[in-house]
Simulated assay, not measured.
Amino acid sequence: MSLTTDFIAELIRAANEADRLTPFEVKRLLNRSVATIREMREQTGVPGSYRVKDVVIDLQVAAARADALPANEIRDNLLDAADIIRTLKIILDGKPS
């Protein structure tokens, strides 16, 4: 498995255990997700959006509020991050070298 695939699996596992994660773990996972998504967007040429509905902005807000997020919002944010990263990985895997 690739590092990206491993990270996607880590996000999904964490989402399934959202009620057991510490705020530090949530913040770390969400911040890693933001960095990964930005890097992958750059590699794919898929631009980010500076509008209110960009998932990166949502993830950054969630990371900043990690100590106050209920388990269901933690789960949703981690699954959103995994979904975006998986989609970007599919795009990257399909790009000619």
Rank of each mutant, 00 (worst) to 15 (best):
Ala35Leu: 08
Asp93Ser: 12
Pro23His: 10
Leu29Ser: 03
Thr36Ser: 13
Glu17Thr: 10
Lys53Phe: 14
Arg13Trp: 11
Val55Asp: 14
Ala9Pro: 00
Pro96Ala: 12
Val52Met: 12
Leu11Arg: 01
Lys53Ala: 11
Asp54Val: 01
Arg65Ala: 12
Glu10Leu: 14
Pro70Gly: 02
Asp93Met: 09
Leu30Phe: 09
Asp76Ala: 13
Leu79His: 02
Glu10Asp: 14
Leu78Tyr: 07
Asp19Val: 00
Leu92Ile: 09
Phe24Thr: 14
Ala63Val: 01
Ala64Trp: 03
Ser97Met: 11
Glu39Thr: 05
Ala63Ser: 13
Gly48Ser: 13
Ala15His: 04
Leu21Trp: 07
Pro96Trp: 05
Arg13Gly: 00
Ile85Ala: 03
Ala68Asp: 14
Leu78Gln: 06
Val52Ala: 11
Ile12Asn: 08
Ala15Gln: 06
Gly45Lys: 04
Ala62Gly: 02
Asp54Cys: 08
Lys27Pro: 00
Met40Arg: 13
Ile57Asp: 09
Lys27Ser: 15
Pro96Arg: 13
Leu69Lys: 02
Leu88Lys: 05
Ile37Arg: 04
Pro96Gln: 12
Glu73Lys: 10
Glu10Cys: 07
Leu78Lys: 06
Leu11Trp: 09
Glu73Cys: 00
Leu59Lys: 11
Ser49Glu: 15
Glu10Ser: 11
Val26Trp: 06
Leu78Thr: 07
Ala82Phe: 06
Ile57Leu: 15
Asp54His: 03
Arg32Asp: 15
Ser33Pro: 09
Asn72Thr: 09
Asp58Val: 01
Leu92Gln: 14
Ile12Glu: 15
Ile90Met: 15
Ala82Arg: 03
Arg51Val: 06
Leu88Ala: 08
Ser33Met: 01
Arg75Pro: 02
Glu25Tyr: 03
Leu92Ala: 12
Leu11Cys: 07
Arg65Lys: 15
Asp80Cys: 06
Leu69His: 06
Ile12Leu: 14
Thr22Leu: 07
Val55Thr: 10
Leu11Met: 08
Lys27Thr: 09
Lys53Arg: 13
Glu25Arg: 14
Glu17Val: 02
Asp80Glu: 13
Ser33Val: 00
Ala81Ile: 01
Ala62Asp: 15
Arg41Leu: 09
Thr22Ile: 01
Asp93Val: 01
Asn16Asp: 15
Gly45Met: 05
Asn77Gln: 13
Asp80Tyr: 04
Asp19Trp: 08
Ala64Ser: 13
Asp93Arg: 12
Ala14Thr: 06
Lys27Gly: 08
Ser97Ala: 14
Gly45Glu: 10
Ser33Asn: 05
Val26Glu: 08
Ala63His: 06
Pro23Asn: 08
Pro70Glu: 14
Ala18Gln: 05
Ile37Ser: 01
Leu92Gly: 10
Thr36Leu: 07
Val34Phe: 01
Leu11Thr: 07
Gly45Gln: 06
Pro70Ser: 02
Val34Trp: 03
Leu21Tyr: 07
Ala14Met: 05
Leu29Asn: 07
Ala62Met: 11
Glu10Val: 07
Gly94Gln: 14
Ala66Thr: 03
